[in-house]
Structures are given as C-alpha cells and as structure tokens.
Design a protein around this nucleic acid. Sequence first.
RNA 1: GCUCGUAUAGUGUAGUGGCCCAUCAUGAAGGACUCUCAUUCCUUCGACCCGGGUUCAAAUCCCGGUACGAGCACCA
Length: 487
Amino acid sequence: MKERRTGLPELKDAKKGNVVLRFAPNPNGPLSFGHARGLVINSTYREMYDGVFILRFDDTDTKVKPPMLEAYERIQEETAWLTGRKPDRVVIASDRMEAYYEHATMMLEKGYGYVCQCSAEAFKEHRVGKTDCPCRNQTTPENIGLWEQMLNREFSPGDVVVRVKTDMTLKNPALRDWPALRLQDTQAHPHPREEVGSKYVVWPLLDFQSAVEDHLQGVTHIVRGKDLMDSTRKQTLLYEHFGWKYPETMYWGRVKVHEWGGFSTSKMRLDIEEGRYPGWGDPRLPTLEGLKGRGISDAALRAFWLELGITQKDISVPLSTLYAHNTKVVDAKAPRLSFIREAVLCSLEGSKIPETISHPVNPNDDSMGLRTWNMTDGTVYIEQEDVEKGHLRLKEFADVDLVGSRAIITSFERSDKRPIVHWITEGNSTEGTLISTSNNEIHTQKGRIEKHSLKSGTIVQLERIGYARLQEDGSFILCHEASVDEK
RNA sequence: GCUCGUAUAGUGUAGUGGCCCAUCAUGAAGGACUCUCAUUCCUUCGACCCGGGUUCAAAUCCCGGUACGAGCACCA
C-alpha cells in the first residue's frame, strides 16, 4: 500500500531557506473565513521551508473596493492570531507607487506597452475581434508623452489606460493587451490613508502591481485561488517582456460553506453600514473576528484548511467539519459548567443531604480540580424539559422523584436507569444568558448559570448543551450552532 | 460565445501505470467506557463521472462526452 501523504505537498523547486511567499488581501475590511486559507497555507509553507512570509496590502482601488483604514492594523493582528507569528515582512502597495511608475515608464520606453485612449467598449470590440486598436501602433515618444500627461492629470478617469502589449490573436481573450494602469478620481474618492489621500491619480491594476511587486520582493512561490489563473498568464507575459522568471504557482479551488453560501467583504461592509449587523465581529458573520468570538480556535481553523489542502477542485463543506476540529482542540481544556435553561426551582426533600457536593471541573483531567457546591439551600434548579420526565438522577448527587415543584430524594446511589441530568442549586448560581445563532438569527436564552470565576474568552462546556465562550459581558455564546444542513 | 480548470464513499481527502477488490478524517448506524446528549475507544456502512483508446497492466496516460467552477472589468 502506498504511503498516505500528510501535510501539504512539496513546493516545486523549493530550497529550504530560499522560499518567499506572500498573502495579499485587499484591506477593504477585516479578514474572513476564506482569507484564512491563504494565510494558513502560505504561512505553513513558510514554516516548512524556513522561508519568508510577506503580508501585502493590495490597496490600489479607491472607488470600487475602497480600503478601510482600520483594516490595516486589524489584519496584521488577525494574521498573528491565526498563524501564530507576525509576518516576516509587511508591504503596502499604496506606499510603493513610485516603484510601479518606474516600471510602467520602463515598460513604455521599451515598447512592452502603450497608452490606450480607446473607451472600454471600443477596446472590447478589438479584443473580441482580435484587431489592433489605433493606439497600439503609437511610437515610444508618443506613449511617453501621453504617460506624462496622465501623470500630470491632463486626462480624466475613463479616458485613458496603460496596456501591456501581448498579442491580439492570443487564444484566450482575457490575455489580449490587458490593462496595467488606469486613472482614478482621488478627489472624489481619496485613498483613506492620510499620507496617500489624493496624491496620485494614476493607479496600477492588480495584475501589474502584483506582478511587479512579486518580482521586487523576490517571491519564489505563489499559492492562491484558481480564479487568479488567468492573472498568472497575464503576468507571465509581462515577466517575459522584462526577462524575469515567474514564481512557481499553485492554486486551490472554490470553497463554499453550506450554511453561508456566498458572501463577500464588500457585501458585509454594506450590510454593516446599513445596520443589518452591528459590526464585523457579529457571530453570524464569517469573519475571523466573528469566528474567534464564537470560540472557534486558531488551531481548528488551521487544521480545517490544512485538511482541505490545495486541490483545484471546487468543494462545498458543512460547518460541522470545522466544528469537529474545534471540539478536538477545545474539549481537553474546557471547564465544565452547569447552565439550566428554562430553570424550574424545586425544593429538595430528603434526609442526610450532604453539606457540599463536588464535581470535577473536567472529568478527563483531574489536575483541573473540583468544583464544590454548598448544599444547604434545600433547593435545586432543573430544566423544565427534564422536570417533565418525573424521575431523574441529579448528576453526581442523587436520584429524585418530582412531584409538583418538590424533588424528593429516593437514593444517593444510582438505583435505576433514570436519565442523568445536570442541575444547580440556587445559591451556587446566578442569572445567566446563553447566546446562540442559527438561520442567521441570534437567539438569547435566559437561565441559571453556575457561579464561576473564569476569565472572559474562556471556552467552557455547558454540560449536556455544548461548548460555549464566556463573553466580556458575562454571557455565554454557543460555539457550534446547531447546524441544520439545508442544502 | 471564447478561454482556462476540475471530476475518488453523504462530506472532505490520499493516491501521478503494477504495492489499490483504493488511504485517512468526518458522517451515519451499532457497541464499550463514562453519574453530561461531551470526550475516548471498538465495529460496521460507503467511492475511482460516462464512453472509447494506449498498455501485459489504468483511479493514475490519451481522445471524446457530460457536469460543475473560474476568467474574458479602467475590482481585488
């Protein structure tokens, strides 16, 4: 039998210590679930090859997907949280405009590109018809002259664009003389970074910016989504002009999560602005912040993405897969706590009730100690649903028969197969709240929560309910929503 | 429409010509342990898209078909 490969496949032509990788999100919002893939895969390769991992902000669009100022800092924090270390290098595209201009100038001087004044519609006809547009045959001085006019703000957005000269008869229409730089109205749509603002009107497009930057940073391997496959081909054509070697490239396919369907940073941003969600950390949103807030661990996220690997297949996975990873990570360290939903207060009747009862904090780890409850109250809270069963075993305590709101102790030893239920006394509990999400709604459940002195952020296991994270306001939020596979 | 890509159990994944009547995980069903409907452990179930071809030998290579996805933006 063949050996099963574990972990990620080897990178082609990779030498330990000589690998440079990057992940380049648009800072138009904090990172979301999908971004985690790029982070996890690339940073894992960085570890495998003892290489360099670059976090690059591709913030070259101020209108369609405008950057969000807070995102720059936030994304760096999220990267550190998810990958366990800071990126080796951080590059911000909007800081690198001079380098892009320099290469654009070089490209025009050497005749690798031209300044095109055709409208988008007019050029589309040339692209489809495989014909040269009139601008294509301009001389180098003409192109340089137009380029300077662009830089001098003598054109308006939409009037002119710099194209890379490829071949108008290329089989793939997407590659024919693709646009490299364009104009943006940064008066109306200034860049949110103060130092950039309205300073530039000529901006590189992703394919050009990314291609030049990858070369400048010495990127050796690119691992990214297969939606960027044509981008690789475009960029390779540019690299050929310059005589550079394109990095080795690998792709992963589309991932759809059953419960979320499609989502995008732009859409979430709009929803938040319009008040459909209070913020990026809302537990219903597939943002890293939202997931973290619900108690999904960084280790679970890493295991999840590593397991999917980098196949080019388009897949659809249920959230329960992520939850299974999370349970593995979280269970061993999760203190157990009693939370009684729809709590019914019953009087405890019987003789020889001990003064205290002790339960393990975590039955699988004695070193976590015991939680001890004072039993002198003479009352217990039991869930309504359990009360209806009539005969119960109060976990680690006693068998009781329920008559009205009286819980009559019949035995301290387990005497029959009656259901074992969780419970709490009045004195050992306080009012508690459990938050859960399902079907894109937030549900709040009141109940009695066992007293504790845990720090917010702790992931606990509410006995017979599930794992939950203690929030700053003292409420608990369920980590793994009851997932209903609808699609 | 043009171009590119992918197709292995319910869901993911391993597998680049013989170690494969196909790996591992998850899931489902059953069971053990357990004073939680948790964790752990055991058992069982279950797949190479279809049709040709190459070969002594094909999940693996080639061709065709089908399905699904992506690109063809002055977005990233």
